[in-house]
């Protein structure tokens, strides 16, 4: 039976809060897609008409991603797998936003609008992953 510390360290705090935010965002998408679509202050309608089914699909991803990060915050052994999964999604998500902005699907104002909710999380999860990897190998 393996034993593992469940105490939080700074990396756990970052992952836990980040995961909680993703959990709430995903729950919002699942519970009320139209409200999320028009209320999220990230210009979602700029990308196209509302499709409630697809919003719920994405909500499911965010809930799982958030739950994995929260769990990993308290379970250090699960951090790298959780960071790898979440990081893969967030980086690809960022790439999709870059492509859609470059090709003109949305206006150039989205370079700034997407920084807090898209590009920053993708960068931070990669940085946190490198910190965790460094911790694991020292």
């Amino acid at each position: 039976m393996e034993s593992e510390s469940k105490a939080l360290d700074p990396i756990g705090v970052v992952l836990g809060l980040f995961g909680l935010g993703n959990l709430l965002n995903g729950a919002w998408m699942l519970a009320d897609p139209p409200h999320w679509y028009v209320t999220l202050p990230a210009g979602v309608p700029d990308f196209g008409p509302l499709n409630e089914h697809f919003v719920r699909d994405i909500g499911a991803v965010f809930v799982v991603l958030g739950a994995a990060l929260v769990y990993a915050a308290f379970r250090p052994r699960w951090r790298m797998p959780a960071i790898a999964g979440a990081g893969g999604f967030l980086v690809l998500h960022g790439v999709v936003h870059i492509i859609d902005t470059v090709r003109g699907l949305v206006g150039p104002e989205h370079w700034l609008i997407d920084i807090p909710g898209v590009y920053l999380p993708a960068v931070v999860i990669v940085v946190v992953g490198s910190w965790q990897r460094k911790n694991d190998t020292t």
């Binding site: 980040f18 935010g21 993703n22 807090p116 999380p121």
Partner: peptide
């Protein structure tokens, strides 16, 4: 962590 938690919901 707080910044990452709040960014989806901030009215920026």
């Amino acid at each position: 962590g707080g910044l990452l938690f709040a960014t989806p919901f901030l009215r920026y």
